[in-house]
Design a protein around this nucleic acid. Structure first.
Lengths: 372, 372
DNA sequence: AGGGGAAGTTAAAACGTTTTCAGAAGGAGG
DNA sequence: CCTCCTTCTGAAAACGTTTTAACTTCCCCT
């Protein structure tokens, strides 16, 4: 790593920036007072012009605006929020921004918030409940009006208690809690749930395999206790049942999510004695791992094994072969979370919105010649 | 909410006002006043205990803490920031969070900020200068101490003027501007630049191809005016020159970045008459598009054409074949941006830090039997 | 000519903290 | 016993806005 100092040799590098700061005042920040003084009016008038929620005659108006422009006045958001009883802020809490799916949700939240002129704060937890709690606390101090918790989670007692505490605390402060893709521990809690219809999606994609003649289908990526995955597993089972398959036709590998998990689980599966012709992956990253394991095992997709994923991440069409998967419009999930929460403040207690998904057919599924 | 009567033996007058206020406007938010009242002390004492920057005897201390706990008191961040002259905040501005590379940078910034106890705000622009300006303005109002602009950009006059304005405005307010992966328009400006050594990285990966015997190498994904890409092109040319190739051995396709651009440009290239055995892609997404185009064209990688990428995005090892690329530790870039900016406040004007990169060899490069 | 609005403006009171300044209580030293 | 620290605590003054209530003008109407 090189540290290359700029051409400080030019001498007038600082260009009097520091001096200017010292000259104006101690802090260097222009306040509404100075604008008022320069415009020859009171601070109240300046405030009215700038906040724009009170009529001011054009003459004074332009005078104030000119002064503000000349001084490069910038309002202090904290002072504003203090007197205004808070500022319009929405906070999103994610496990990590680097996950393509979560990132899209965050982008949706941010975009929707922006259209309403709200500020959007993003926090990551890395899956650590401790950090989640700290961030929620921070958002309480910040006065966020909307806190959105994103992402599936194992629903244990600690989780239930935690979310109940958030919900009550935020509700008491007049804020709202939205759970995106995770369950409400108690239907009476003042939270809003927005999530995809995981069961329907999994049923549809499993049905797609069944229609192609597959009868021995493995679900790879179960995670007992995680409601999103549990719902997908339920959908998978439901599809099998619909096609008249018996209960023990279902085979669920609880390897959890992530590329590494999929790779490992698929490798083991290939070495085992269980026969199968198709795989439903818990999500696209699991599918990515599975594809690699299959290729490493010397088999071909879809000729030997068909594979489908879940979520349709941006690179799914670049997998080899391009992945047939379930498209979950993640950005729309984020937008919807904000929209629902803002639309109907009284909608809070126990409301639940399910968003639809659809199948994207690419090249990772082939028909079976002789259905067994 | 319960109003604790009689707990405060003294100061009946003060208690009356506070109680009245609490009773009148039951907004739901507990203030420091109510904590003071319940603990039987003044607000000053409560503040001292809670902010922790003044010694308070244990007895009073626990009494205050107990009261705060009992009322579930949460400090108002805005009031705090107002009197404290701002709050420790760092703002990151990205083109989009859904880009894996940018997302990693953001994660690095967030992580590093968190270790210092700073709040991290993320804004996206979608590449629109207008939105960039709006967000920077918002951060000025917010009083962010550190604004980090991330991502390559075409350096035109509008860009230069914009950044100069940001730099001066932020400097005047005592804040700092960091440019991550984009150039400083003027070495005298009070900005800090942190970026990867793109030229060295491109030189190294091109050298890797040259060592494998390739002599006809195309650079796919130039974007004239974008300093990051320009530097990579320069590195590519430098490597060719180092290996004794003439100037016109270089062939740069200025198709810009993104998977779609790579797909289109590569398709055209395959239909053209230019001969080549290897491709250096401007980044991994371009490489993804190129791989697809090559596969669609009925050719194989790396047997027929070798391909290398840039950035090593998480899914690069799942490309078909796994992509040989340049690893740019994006998260480290984000961390470094914060670290450098916080470490030495006087380091500002014109300082520039270059971060190193290294090659990751996978399966997309094969040796050439008969170097032409 | 005097009263009543309307229109335009301002002084001052919030908002919830931190911090300064000063007072009170309690010992120690003379 | 008085004085002088020390230690603890509280009243009040910031911080930079918005908003309320009041105060001018000025004009119109009777």
């Amino acid at each position: 790593m090189t540290t290359a100092k700029g051409t400080a040799a030019k001498g007038a590098a600082a260009k009097g920036t520091a001096a200017k700061r010292a000259a104006v005042k101690g802090t260097g920040r222009v306040t509404i007072r100075e604008v008022a003084e320069r415009a020859g009016v009171s601070v109240a008038t300046v405030s009215r012009v700038l906040s724009g929620n009170y009529p001011v005659p054009p003459a004074t108006r332009t005078r104030v605006l000119r002064a503000a422009r000349a001084l490069d006045y910038v309002a202090n958001a904290h002072a504003r929020a203090l007197v205004g009883g808070g500022r319009n802020t929405v906070a999103v809490v994610l496990r990590q921004v680097t996950s393509p799916f979560y990132a899209q949700v965050a982008e949706g939240v941010e975009a929707e918030a922006a259209t309403h002129g709200w500020l959007c704060l993003v926090g990551t937890t890395g899956g650590d409940p401790q950090r989640e709690m700290e961030f929620v606390q921070l958002m309480r101090e910040e006065g966020a009006r909307l806190v959105i918790l994103v992402g599936g989670v194992v629903e244990d007692d600690a989780y239930r208690e935690r979310v109940a505490r958030y919900a009550e605390a935020l509700d008491a402060a007049g804020s709202r809690l939205v759970l995106c893709g995770r369950p409400a521990p108690d239907p009476d809690l003042p939270v809003l749930v927005v999530e995809f219809d995981n069961e329907a999606g999994a049923r549809a994609i499993t049905g797609h395999l069944l229609s192609a003649g597959h009868r021995r289908i493995v679900f790879l990526g179960g995670l007992p206790g995680n409601t999103a995955l549990d719902a997908r597993v339920a959908g998978y089972r439901a599809a099998l049942a619909e096609h008249g398959l018996s209960e023990d036709a279902a085979y669920v590998v609880d390897c959890g999510l992530g590329r590494a998990a999929g790779l490992r689980a698929m490798t083991e599966l290939l070495q085992g004695r269980r026969e199968f012709t198709a795989v439903v992956a818990g999500d696209d990253m699991v599918a990515a791992g599975a594809l690699r394991a299959i290729a490493d095992g010397g088999l071909r997709v879809p000729e030997d094994i068909s594979v489908v994923g879940y979520n349709d991440i941006p690179l799914a069409e670049d997998f080899s072969p391009p992945l047939t998967t379930v498209r979950t419009p993640a950005e729309e999930l984020g937008r919807a979370a904000v929209r629902f929460a803002l639309r109907d403040p009284e909608d809070a207690a126990g409301a639940r919105h399910l968003l639809g998904t659809h199948i994207v057919v690419r090249g990772s599924v082939a028909p079976v010649e002789r259905p067994s």
